[in-house]
Amino acid sequence: MVLSMTALHRSTAGRWLVWSCLFFGSLIPLGWITWEAVQQRLGADPAQVIVTFLGIWALRYLWITLSVTPARRLLGFGWLQRYRRMLGLYALFYASLHLLAVATFILGWRPDLLLRELTERPYIIVGFTAWLLLIPLGITSTRGWQRRLGKRWKTLHWLVYPISLLVLLHFAWLIRAGYLEVLIYALVLAFLLGYRLYLKWR
């Protein structure tokens, strides 16, 4: 599998194939939820379902982006490295849709509600902060910016670690009962971040 993926990337067609699979595959969650909404299969509170769904996919893409390095080092998935930017941008993409869905479907763009939610709710402030911090990472994810920023690029993109912790906190803060799901994501993140500490200190 590893060998064949590496082999696949030797040809332009192979690279194009993998790129399309990842690019279009990442649109499947959006396509699915849109389809379900159009078919009116989301139940009594479609707004909440859509918001939760987009949020969890933003979180998953962030976690996936953070898995690229461990996957490369531990599993030899060197080919994955070139798609890390795309995966990270999908995290920002789903996070932005999540936010847009909250403002549109839950708050109806009512200024008083928007202001209140953004200033009074700790879990929303935390989530919103994570999204704000992701934006510069998205903007500077291109090769041009990487060149321009030089060493500072790495410093800036180190922000993804605190961002991931903010995202986890945002998620955990919403729980009313039953913390199994958040526990699983927390354990995965603990591994992804812990592995980096291990690389640094060994």
Binding site: A47, F105, L107, R116
Partner: peptide
């Protein structure tokens, strides 16, 4: 009196439709 994590001043009457959330 708000719930510590969210406001109780408004509610969404279900079923809510997407582009006019019944607030």
């Amino acid at each position: 009196v708000d719930h510590p994590r969210w406001s109780q001043s408004t509610e969404r009457r279900l079923p809510s439709s997407l582009f006019s959330p019944n607030i």
